[in-house]
Amino acid sequence: MYELTICHLYPDLLNLYGDRGNIIALTKRCEWRGIRVHSRPVSLGDRFSPDECDILFIGGGQDYEQSIIQDDLLKGKREAIKEAVEAGKVILAVCGGMQLLGRYYRTHDGKDIACIGAVDLWTHGSHDRLIGNLVFECDFLKKDGFDGLVVGFENHSGKTWMGPGVRPMGKVIAGFGNNGEDGFEGAVYKNTYCTYSHGSLLPKNPALADHLITLALKNRYTDFEALPPLDDSLEAAAREAMIRRLTGKQGSGR
């Protein structure tokens, strides 16, 4: 029997916008296939050890909560998280989580807040807020045999940019994406996936959820090949409805 450990970073502080839906989706989609999941909250004062983690999830928090974790994160967990990223651990970081993995966050009055620096991306605060439903297209999901479209909801005032070693997660079809300017959404570095898309992201985008689970199982089990398919008709209906609404086009149904 396969097993995976899913760590949720600061679940009591970084838990905006239904972030835990991503953990629920990963867990359920494993359980429905007989894969045992251990979920582990990693909060203030807890040690994070990359060796005991297959998937790490980092969500976003309100400014007040993010200010509480600042010290614990940078002094207690920064090195371990960098190590996990470099070792190719599967990581999903949403919204504030993506910003935290980057190098710094520059507030709109020009103050730089140091971040983890595990991924070569950075964020500049702005006065406009990028809010709304979002559809973007991911090539790596097309390679998995899907239509590659991912739906979600974004709500951020930070605008994120990335260096040459990092690829965007997808191309914006409808919505703003990382900065509302370059047409890209999210970032991928090794097995670390970052995005502004909540909504919650994974329940409605099962192809992406399965992509992450597959990577994690391949990391841990050399004999693992592929996940058996599930009946995703409800998920497909929810995803399709939003694709139709935002683009006027039909998705391929998967």
């Binding site: 838990n15 916008y17 239904g18 972030d19 835990r20 839906g21 629920i24 809010i131 709304g132 439903n133 909801f153 709500n155 909540h198 909504g199 919650s200 329940p203």
Partner: peptide
Amino acid sequence: GTDISWLWD
């Protein structure tokens, strides 16, 4: 509220 993510909370 245009964002329904809260259903997951």
